[in-house]
Protein backbone atom coordinates (compact mmCIF):
# COMPACT_ATOMS: atom_id res chain seq x y z
CA UNK A 1 0.00 0.00 0.00
CA UNK A 2 1.27 3.45 -0.85
CA UNK A 3 1.31 6.19 1.80
CA UNK A 4 -2.02 5.91 3.59
CA UNK A 5 -4.44 8.82 3.99
CA UNK A 6 -4.57 8.18 7.69
CA UNK A 7 -2.03 6.37 9.83
CA UNK A 8 -2.64 5.64 13.48
CA UNK A 9 0.41 4.70 15.54
CA UNK A 10 0.34 3.37 19.07
CA UNK A 11 -2.91 5.13 19.92
CA UNK A 12 -3.95 4.80 23.56
CA UNK A 13 -6.61 6.18 25.84
CA UNK A 14 -6.90 5.64 29.56
CA UNK A 15 -9.96 7.15 31.21
CA UNK A 16 -9.12 8.27 34.72
CA UNK A 17 -11.27 6.59 37.33
CA UNK A 18 -12.90 8.43 40.18
CA UNK A 19 -10.94 8.87 43.33
CA UNK A 20 -12.07 6.25 45.81
CA UNK A 21 -11.97 8.63 48.74
CA UNK A 22 -10.55 11.88 49.92
CA UNK A 23 -7.16 10.47 50.87
CA UNK A 24 -6.98 7.46 48.60
CA UNK A 25 -5.30 7.71 45.22
CA UNK A 26 -7.32 7.29 42.06
CA UNK A 27 -7.83 3.79 40.74
CA UNK A 28 -5.88 2.43 37.82
CA UNK A 29 -8.23 3.90 35.22
CA UNK A 30 -9.88 2.26 32.27
CA UNK A 31 -7.70 1.28 29.33
CA UNK A 32 -10.28 1.80 26.61
CA UNK A 33 -7.78 1.75 23.76
CA UNK A 34 -4.27 0.35 24.02
CA UNK A 35 -1.40 0.66 21.55
CA UNK A 36 -3.60 0.63 18.49
CA UNK A 37 -2.15 1.04 15.04
CA UNK A 38 -4.09 1.23 11.83
CA UNK A 39 -3.66 2.44 8.26
CA UNK A 40 -6.50 3.74 6.16
CA UNK A 41 -6.04 4.29 2.44
CA UNK A 42 -7.77 7.06 0.52
CA UNK A 43 -11.18 6.19 -0.92
CA UNK A 44 -11.28 2.88 0.92
CA UNK A 45 -13.46 1.38 3.61
CA UNK A 46 -11.86 -0.07 6.71
CA UNK A 47 -14.23 -1.78 9.10
CA UNK A 48 -13.55 -1.85 12.81
CA UNK A 49 -15.41 -4.74 14.41
CA UNK A 50 -15.66 -6.18 17.88
CA UNK A 51 -18.01 -6.71 20.78
CA UNK A 52 -19.63 -3.75 22.47
CA UNK A 53 -17.24 -2.14 24.94
CA UNK A 54 -14.11 -3.24 23.10
CA UNK A 55 -13.15 0.37 22.30
CA UNK A 56 -14.34 0.67 18.69
CA UNK A 57 -16.29 3.89 19.16
CA UNK A 58 -13.61 5.36 21.41
CA UNK A 59 -11.07 4.70 18.66
CA UNK A 60 -13.21 6.57 16.15
CA UNK A 61 -13.58 9.51 18.50
CA UNK A 62 -9.86 9.54 19.31
CA UNK A 63 -8.97 9.70 15.64
CA UNK A 64 -11.19 12.77 15.23
CA UNK A 65 -9.98 14.11 18.57
CA UNK A 66 -13.46 14.33 19.98
CA UNK A 67 -11.69 12.65 22.90
CA UNK A 68 -8.10 13.58 23.71
CA UNK A 69 -5.74 10.64 23.15
CA UNK A 70 -3.45 9.62 26.03
CA UNK A 71 -0.73 8.26 23.76
CA UNK A 72 0.12 7.82 20.16
CA UNK A 73 0.13 9.65 16.88
CA UNK A 74 -2.62 10.09 14.33
CA UNK A 75 -1.17 11.13 11.03
CA UNK A 76 -3.50 12.58 8.44
CA UNK A 77 -1.39 12.88 5.30
CA UNK A 78 1.62 13.07 7.55
CA UNK A 79 0.16 15.78 9.80
CA UNK A 80 -0.18 14.72 13.43
CA UNK A 81 -3.76 15.26 14.55
CA UNK A 82 -2.94 14.35 18.14
CA UNK A 83 -0.48 17.24 18.38
CA UNK A 84 -2.40 19.81 16.32
CA UNK A 85 -3.12 23.22 17.81
CA UNK A 86 -6.61 24.70 17.78
CA UNK A 87 -6.25 26.47 14.44
CA UNK A 88 -4.64 23.50 12.74
CA UNK A 89 -7.30 21.24 14.25
CA UNK A 90 -10.08 23.38 12.88
CA UNK A 91 -8.58 23.17 9.41
CA UNK A 92 -8.24 19.39 9.78
CA UNK A 93 -11.92 19.08 10.69
CA UNK A 94 -12.71 20.11 7.14
CA UNK A 95 -11.01 16.92 6.01
CA UNK A 96 -12.53 14.51 8.50
CA UNK A 97 -16.09 14.15 9.70
CA UNK A 98 -18.25 11.72 11.61
CA UNK A 99 -21.61 10.04 11.14
CA UNK A 100 -23.20 9.07 14.43
CA UNK A 101 -24.99 5.94 15.48
CA UNK A 102 -27.90 7.72 17.10
CA UNK A 103 -29.89 9.66 14.48
CA UNK A 104 -32.00 11.19 17.24
CA UNK A 105 -29.44 12.40 19.77
CA UNK A 106 -26.95 13.68 17.25
CA UNK A 107 -29.02 16.70 16.28
CA UNK A 108 -30.04 19.58 18.48
CA UNK A 109 -33.84 19.19 18.69
CA UNK A 110 -34.42 22.93 18.37
CA UNK A 111 -32.53 23.57 15.16
CA UNK A 112 -33.83 23.26 11.64
CA UNK A 113 -32.43 20.80 9.13
CA UNK A 114 -30.83 23.67 7.21
CA UNK A 115 -29.13 24.96 10.35
CA UNK A 116 -27.92 21.48 11.25
CA UNK A 117 -26.47 20.74 7.83
CA UNK A 118 -24.91 24.18 7.42
CA UNK A 119 -23.28 24.16 10.85
CA UNK A 120 -19.90 22.67 9.78
CA UNK A 121 -19.83 24.99 6.75
CA UNK A 122 -20.54 27.96 8.93
CA UNK A 123 -17.96 26.90 11.52
CA UNK A 124 -15.38 26.65 8.76
CA UNK A 125 -16.34 30.01 7.29
CA UNK A 126 -17.26 28.36 4.00
CA UNK A 127 -20.55 30.13 3.39
CA UNK A 128 -21.04 33.84 2.90
CA UNK A 129 -24.70 34.72 2.58
CA UNK A 130 -27.96 33.17 3.66
CA UNK A 131 -28.96 32.68 0.04
CA UNK A 132 -25.74 30.80 -0.63
CA UNK A 133 -26.33 28.65 2.45
CA UNK A 134 -29.81 27.73 1.21
CA UNK A 135 -28.43 26.76 -2.15
CA UNK A 136 -25.67 24.61 -0.68
CA UNK A 137 -28.04 22.91 1.77
CA UNK A 138 -30.55 22.22 -0.99
CA UNK A 139 -27.80 20.57 -3.05
CA UNK A 140 -26.67 18.47 -0.09
CA UNK A 141 -30.22 17.33 0.67
CA UNK A 142 -30.61 16.20 -2.93
CA UNK A 143 -27.34 14.30 -2.77
CA UNK A 144 -28.57 12.28 0.19
CA UNK A 145 -31.96 11.64 -1.34
CA UNK A 146 -34.09 14.15 0.55
CA UNK A 147 -36.19 16.97 -0.83
CA UNK A 148 -34.78 20.50 -0.50
CA UNK A 149 -38.28 21.53 0.62
CA UNK A 150 -37.54 19.82 3.93
CA UNK A 151 -34.78 22.21 4.98
CA UNK A 152 -36.89 24.31 7.31
CA UNK A 153 -38.33 21.38 9.24
CA UNK A 154 -37.13 20.18 12.62
CA UNK A 155 -35.38 16.84 13.10
CA UNK A 156 -38.33 15.34 14.96
CA UNK A 157 -40.42 15.54 11.80
CA UNK A 158 -38.26 12.88 10.16
CA UNK A 159 -37.92 9.11 10.47
CA UNK A 160 -34.71 7.49 11.71
CA UNK A 161 -33.53 6.71 8.18
CA UNK A 162 -34.24 10.26 6.99
CA UNK A 163 -32.42 11.66 9.98
CA UNK A 164 -29.43 9.51 9.21
CA UNK A 165 -29.47 11.01 5.71
CA UNK A 166 -29.45 14.46 7.30
CA UNK A 167 -26.50 13.36 9.43
CA UNK A 168 -24.70 12.19 6.30
CA UNK A 169 -25.43 15.50 4.55
CA UNK A 170 -23.93 17.31 7.53
CA UNK A 171 -20.83 15.11 7.42
CA UNK A 172 -20.18 15.58 3.69
CA UNK A 173 -21.03 19.31 3.70
CA UNK A 174 -17.45 20.50 4.12
CA UNK A 175 -16.10 18.08 1.54
CA UNK A 176 -14.13 15.77 3.82
CA UNK A 177 -11.92 12.96 2.57
CA UNK A 178 -12.24 10.77 5.63
CA UNK A 179 -15.39 9.92 7.57
CA UNK A 180 -15.76 7.92 10.75
CA UNK A 181 -19.07 6.09 10.44
CA UNK A 182 -19.83 5.04 13.99
CA UNK A 183 -22.37 2.22 13.68
CA UNK A 184 -24.28 4.36 11.18
CA UNK A 185 -27.04 1.82 10.54
CA UNK A 186 -27.32 -0.19 13.75
CA UNK A 187 -30.10 2.01 15.12
CA UNK A 188 -32.16 1.69 11.95
CA UNK A 189 -34.73 -0.80 10.70
CA UNK A 190 -33.26 -3.58 8.61
CA UNK A 191 -35.20 -2.38 5.57
CA UNK A 192 -33.62 1.08 5.87
CA UNK A 193 -30.11 -0.19 6.64
CA UNK A 194 -29.48 -1.30 3.06
CA UNK A 195 -30.55 2.11 1.68
CA UNK A 196 -28.17 3.95 3.96
CA UNK A 197 -25.30 1.56 3.22
CA UNK A 198 -25.91 2.04 -0.50
CA UNK A 199 -25.98 5.80 -0.05
CA UNK A 200 -22.64 5.64 1.77
CA UNK A 201 -21.17 3.56 -1.04
CA UNK A 202 -22.49 5.89 -3.75
CA UNK A 203 -21.06 8.91 -1.97
CA UNK A 204 -17.75 7.11 -1.55
CA UNK A 205 -17.56 6.48 -5.27
CA UNK A 206 -18.51 10.07 -6.16
CA UNK A 207 -16.33 11.83 -3.64
CA UNK A 208 -13.47 9.38 -3.11
CA UNK A 209 -14.25 9.19 0.60
CA UNK A 210 -12.36 6.99 2.99
CA UNK A 211 -14.50 5.40 5.70
CA UNK A 212 -13.65 3.98 9.05
CA UNK A 213 -16.78 1.89 9.38
CA UNK A 214 -17.36 0.93 12.99
CA UNK A 215 -19.81 -1.93 13.33
CA UNK A 216 -20.65 -5.13 15.09
CA UNK A 217 -22.78 -6.35 12.20
CA UNK A 218 -20.54 -8.72 10.28
CA UNK A 219 -22.99 -9.09 7.39
CA UNK A 220 -22.84 -5.37 6.64
CA UNK A 221 -19.07 -5.31 7.15
CA UNK A 222 -18.76 -8.15 4.64
CA UNK A 223 -20.76 -6.07 2.19
CA UNK A 224 -19.08 -2.69 2.55
CA UNK A 225 -15.50 -3.14 3.81
CA UNK A 226 -12.27 -3.65 1.95
CA UNK A 227 -10.17 -4.14 5.03
CA UNK A 228 -11.28 -5.34 8.43
CA UNK A 229 -9.71 -4.75 11.84
CA UNK A 230 -10.93 -6.88 14.74
CA UNK A 231 -10.72 -5.34 18.20
CA UNK A 232 -10.71 -7.03 21.56
CA UNK A 233 -10.26 -5.19 24.86
CA UNK A 234 -8.93 -2.01 23.30
CA UNK A 235 -6.44 -3.71 20.99
CA UNK A 236 -6.49 -4.77 17.38
CA UNK A 237 -6.06 -8.55 17.43
CA UNK A 238 -6.28 -9.15 13.73
CA UNK A 239 -6.34 -6.99 10.66
CA UNK A 240 -6.30 -7.63 6.95
CA UNK A 241 -8.21 -7.71 3.68
CA UNK A 242 -11.88 -8.58 4.07
CA UNK A 243 -11.56 -11.84 2.17
CA UNK A 244 -8.69 -13.04 4.34
CA UNK A 245 -10.39 -12.09 7.60
CA UNK A 246 -13.69 -13.75 6.71
CA UNK A 247 -12.32 -16.82 4.95
CA UNK A 248 -9.01 -17.45 6.63
CA UNK A 249 -8.89 -15.85 10.07
CA UNK A 250 -5.71 -16.63 11.95
CA UNK A 251 -6.52 -15.26 15.38
CA UNK A 252 -8.66 -17.51 17.60
CA UNK A 253 -10.84 -14.53 18.63
CA UNK A 254 -11.62 -13.64 15.03
CA UNK A 255 -12.51 -17.24 14.37
CA UNK A 256 -14.81 -17.36 17.38
CA UNK A 257 -16.43 -14.03 16.47
CA UNK A 258 -17.13 -15.18 12.92
CA UNK A 259 -18.52 -18.49 14.06
CA UNK A 260 -21.00 -16.67 16.28
CA UNK A 261 -22.46 -14.59 13.46
CA UNK A 262 -25.82 -15.77 12.16
CA UNK A 263 -25.80 -17.26 8.70
CA UNK A 264 -28.23 -16.31 5.97
CA UNK A 265 -28.41 -19.91 4.87
CA UNK A 266 -30.21 -22.01 7.51
CA UNK A 267 -29.08 -25.24 5.91
CA UNK A 268 -25.47 -24.34 6.55
CA UNK A 269 -24.93 -25.97 9.89
CA UNK A 270 -21.64 -25.44 11.48
CA UNK A 271 -20.08 -25.58 14.84
CA UNK A 272 -20.23 -22.40 16.82
CA UNK A 273 -17.24 -21.68 18.98
CA UNK A 274 -18.63 -20.79 22.39
CA UNK A 275 -16.12 -18.75 24.36
CA UNK A 276 -16.04 -19.39 28.09
CA UNK A 277 -16.48 -16.53 30.54
CA UNK A 278 -16.98 -12.84 30.00
CA UNK A 279 -14.85 -10.12 28.51
CA UNK A 280 -12.51 -9.00 31.32
CA UNK A 281 -13.06 -5.54 32.72
CA UNK A 282 -10.95 -2.90 30.97
CA UNK A 283 -9.96 -1.68 34.45
CA UNK A 284 -7.95 -4.89 34.97
CA UNK A 285 -6.74 -6.10 31.64
CA UNK A 286 -5.04 -9.53 31.87
CA UNK A 287 -1.25 -9.62 31.58
CA UNK A 288 0.22 -10.63 28.27
CA UNK A 289 -2.48 -11.39 25.76
CA UNK A 290 -5.83 -9.82 26.65
CA UNK A 291 -7.72 -12.71 25.16
CA UNK A 292 -5.93 -15.51 27.07
CA UNK A 293 -8.59 -15.82 29.80
CA UNK A 294 -11.10 -17.04 27.22
CA UNK A 295 -8.85 -18.51 24.59
CA UNK A 296 -8.98 -22.27 23.93
CA UNK A 297 -5.35 -22.20 22.78
CA UNK A 298 -3.88 -20.32 25.75
CA UNK A 299 -0.49 -21.50 27.03
CA UNK A 300 1.89 -20.23 29.71
CA UNK A 301 3.57 -17.83 27.30
CA UNK A 302 0.29 -15.99 26.71
CA UNK A 303 0.33 -14.66 30.29
CA UNK A 304 3.97 -13.60 30.04
CA UNK A 305 4.44 -12.02 26.65
CA UNK A 306 1.99 -9.79 24.94
CA UNK A 307 1.67 -10.83 21.32
CA UNK A 308 2.26 -8.05 18.82
CA UNK A 309 0.58 -7.67 15.46
CA UNK A 310 2.76 -9.57 13.00
CA UNK A 311 2.28 -10.47 9.36
CA UNK A 312 0.70 -13.89 9.00
CA UNK A 313 -0.28 -13.76 5.34
CA UNK A 314 -0.30 -11.30 2.43
CA UNK A 315 -1.49 -8.01 3.97
CA UNK A 316 -2.88 -9.82 7.00
CA UNK A 317 -1.63 -9.28 10.56
CA UNK A 318 -2.57 -11.09 13.74
CA UNK A 319 -1.58 -10.58 17.36
CA UNK A 320 -1.36 -14.15 18.63
CA UNK A 321 1.52 -16.43 19.55
CA UNK A 322 -0.28 -19.29 17.87
CA UNK A 323 -1.70 -17.50 14.84
CA UNK A 324 -2.24 -20.02 12.10
CA UNK A 325 -4.81 -20.84 9.47
CA UNK A 326 -7.88 -22.22 11.24
CA UNK A 327 -6.38 -21.80 14.73
CA UNK A 328 -9.13 -23.46 16.74
CA UNK A 329 -9.50 -26.24 14.23
CA UNK A 330 -13.10 -26.21 13.14
CA UNK A 331 -14.75 -26.05 9.77
CA UNK A 332 -15.76 -22.48 9.08
CA UNK A 333 -18.10 -20.99 6.56
CA UNK A 334 -20.69 -23.75 6.52
CA UNK A 335 -20.77 -26.74 4.34
Amino acid sequence: MSAPLLRVEGLGKTFASRRRGLWLPAGPGVRAVDDLSLDIAAASTTALVGESGCGKSTTGRLILRLIEPSQGRILFEGEDIAAAGPRQMKALRRQMQIIFQDPFGSMSPRRSVAQIIAEPLEAQGMIGSAAQAREVVAGLLEQVGLSPDHMHRLPRQFSGGQRQRIGIARAISVGPRFIVADEPVSALDVSVQAQIVNLLQDLQAQKRLAYLFISHDLAIVRHIAERVAVMYLGRVVEEGPKRAIFNAPQHPYTQALLSAAPDANPAARRRRIILAGDVPSPTSVPSGCGFRTRCPLAQAICAEARPVLRPVAEGQNAACHFAAPNPIGVALGGG
Binding site: L64, L66, G105, S106, P120, Q124, R170, V174
Partner: peptide
Protein backbone atom coordinates in the same frame (compact mmCIF):
# COMPACT_ATOMS: atom_id res chain seq x y z
CA UNK B 1 -23.96 13.39 20.45
CA UNK B 2 -25.14 16.73 19.08
CA UNK B 3 -22.45 18.47 21.13
CA UNK B 4 -19.87 16.03 19.73
CA UNK B 5 -21.23 16.81 16.28
CA UNK B 6 -20.68 20.52 16.92
CA UNK B 7 -17.08 19.86 18.02
CA UNK B 8 -16.53 17.71 14.93
CA UNK B 9 -17.91 20.58 12.84
CA UNK B 10 -15.15 22.77 14.22
Amino acid sequence: PFVEAAIAAG
